[in-house]
């Protein structure tokens, strides 16, 4: 997706228009990921705003030789969303967690995603993983859990989960590359 790289480069040069176009390209991905991890539209919106402003602020640090713009943007979004989950857990915010577990938002997300084409390939590739690999990867990524939490959720040994996540991602990498 070289267009994204170009917009990010323009953003790094302080070009407001480039950033506005980058916003249009990237905001649904950023917001959707925050929403999936946090499950709460108000918090997702708040975190997405932080992420998008951080993208503007640190676009100057993006190095295309180290990875794609999509990976860079999604990484910032995922990390921020996960940080929010962990700080809510740390502060023992039960109410927030209870609210975060309501399902309707997730259904809305899944429905919106179903209308997009890109997801087919990812779903197919996730299907090449073993059940434990797939569960470990998706609980960690979409659920925002640490691998230790994943282990206790799955009733599996911590070292097993650790290596299943890695094995699963290696398989995912190979599948996505082959199909590209």
């Amino acid at each position: 997706m070289p267009a994204l790289e170009q917009l990010l480069h323009g953003t790094a040069l302080g070009d407001d228009d480039a950033f506005a176009r980058l916003y249009d390209e990237a905001a649904p991905r950023v917001y959707g990921l925050c929403l999936r991890v946090l499950r709460d539209p108000a918090q997702a919106e708040e975190v997405a705003q932080e992420v998008l402003v951080e993208i503007w602020r640190t676009a100057t640090r993006f190095d295309p030789s180290r990875g794609s713009a999509g990976a860079w943007i999604s990484t910032i979004a995922h990390r921020r969303a996960v940080d929010r989950v962990r700080s809510a857990q740390a502060s023992g915010d039960r109410e927030r967690r209870a609210a975060a577990q309501s399902e309707p938002e997730y259904d809305a997300v899944a429905e919106a995603a179903a209308t997009r084409l890109e997801h087919r390939q990812v779903r197919r590739c996730l299907g090449t993983l073993t059940e434990l690999q797939r569960q470990a990867v998706t609980l960690a990524y979409y659920g925002g859990h640490t691998y230790r939490q994943v282990a206790s959720l799955l009733g599996a040994a911590v070292p097993t989960v650790k290596s299943r996540i890695r094995d699963g991602l290696l398989k995912l990498r190979d599948c996505l590359e082959v199909a590209r």
């Binding site: 991905r29 959707g32 929403l35 990875g67 999604s74 990524y141 991602l169 995912l172 990498r173």
Partner: peptide
């Protein structure tokens, strides 16, 4: 791995509330 992982966010794409754009800009 990061290049593979970010593709997992393909399936969660969702339109943000329109007001977010003005706030961010």
């Amino acid at each position: 791995l990061r290049e593979a992982v970010w593709r997992l966010s393909d399936v969660t794409i969702a339109d943000p509330p329109p007001r977010l754009r003005a706030r961010v800009l």
